[in-house]
Computed example of a mutant assay.
Amino acid sequence: MTILVTGATGTVGRQVVSQLVERGERVRALTRNPARASFPSGVEVAAGDLTVAESLAPALEGVTALHLLTVAGDDLADLPNGAELVDLAAKAGVERISVLGSFYEGTVEAALRERGLPWTQLLCMEFMANAFEWTDGVRAGVVHHFGNLPGAVVHEADIAAVSVAALTEDGHAGQAYMITGPELNTPEDRVRMIGEAIGREVEFRQLTEAQVRERMAAAGAEQEMIEFTVMLGTNPPKEGAIVQPTVQQVTGRPGRTFAQWARENADAF
């Protein structure tokens, strides 16, 4: 059985590849730039671009399971060619598909529903890895951030673990898994935990709405992104603040905490 992982160099995709290798699975990693990619020993690297459906045909040969993203490109825009991608997967005889995308259904999900292929939807609100955006602030000793509401941020390795289960075990097809971390914490809590992990205090300063609008506009952000940021800071989706038992139920172990994530990534800060 060969498992194809799209987005294999990304935050979650790289974890999916590593965990599959640890299980002894045969893994093929899809990347737009094979020469620049680095994967564990034994991983087959395939060239392909999700925005160009026909480029996936060779990579899908002999594949029985597929980890599929619904966004691609440097701007992480929703894929417009979901129907073509799903058709290729069906022709290749893919038997299991895990799908990671945005919180809103796009062309990939719609095509999978229409074709009736066995697939598992992975839903996440906020990755712990988003804290890397604070790297410069942490190094300077003060993080400026807009919004301080609690959320159940999820470790990228836990998202990958649920995907790996869906790709290698029966019983997950047809499921839509909301995946969260095991606890609620605020951005201020997370900054404090990063400080504890690196052994020095880091100050948290909350920006006002006016300040975040001014900063983003000065940086050239589009108005749509500014409004989205303000929404996340003032009125985020309620699902993001509800701890779900998915990781425990699917993998048999509790989800990783943010404190654990901070210790694992302390060198980056």
Rank of each mutant, 00 (worst) to 15 (best):
M1E: 14
L4C: 01
L4V: 03
T6N: 06
T6G: 03
G7R: 09
A8C: 04
G10I: 10
G13A: 12
V16H: 06
S18Y: 04
Q19S: 08
L20P: 04
L20E: 09
V21M: 12
E22R: 15
E22G: 10
R23M: 06
G24M: 11
E25Q: 15
A29W: 02
P34A: 01
A37S: 12
S38T: 13
S38A: 14
F39C: 02
F39V: 00
P40M: 08
S41C: 01
G42P: 04
V45Q: 02
V45W: 03
T51E: 13
T51A: 14
T51Y: 04
S55C: 12
L56M: 08
A57I: 11
P58V: 08
A59D: 05
L60Q: 09
G62H: 11
V63G: 08
V63S: 11
A65P: 06
A65Q: 07
L66Y: 10
L66R: 01
H67E: 02
L68H: 05
L68F: 07
T70R: 02
A72R: 03
G73P: 01
L76W: 15
L76A: 14
N81S: 11
G82Q: 02
A89V: 10
A90F: 06
A90G: 06
A90E: 15
K91N: 05
A92T: 10
E95M: 10
R96C: 08
R96Q: 13
S102N: 03
F103Y: 12
E105Y: 05
E105K: 06
A110W: 06
L112A: 06
R113E: 11
R115P: 06
R115N: 02
R115I: 01
G116L: 12
L122I: 15
E126D: 09
E126K: 07
F127H: 12
M128C: 13
M128G: 04
M128E: 14
R139K: 15
R139V: 09
A140P: 03
A140H: 00
G141M: 03
V153E: 07
V154M: 10
E156P: 02
V164E: 00
D170P: 09
H172A: 06
A176D: 12
A176H: 14
M178S: 10
M178H: 15
M178N: 12
I179W: 11
T180G: 14
T180I: 14
G181Q: 11
P182M: 13
E188G: 13
E188A: 15
D189R: 11
R190K: 12
I194V: 15
E196N: 09
A197G: 07
G199A: 05
V202M: 12
E203F: 12
F204N: 06
R205S: 14
Q211Y: 04
A217S: 12
A217F: 01
A218I: 11
A219P: 05
A221Q: 08
E222G: 14
E227G: 01
L232P: 00
G233P: 02
T234Y: 00
N235F: 00
G240T: 07
T246D: 05
T246Y: 04
Q249W: 03
Q249A: 09
Q249I: 00
T251E: 04
G252R: 09
A259K: 09
A259N: 05
W261Y: 15
W261T: 04
A266R: 02
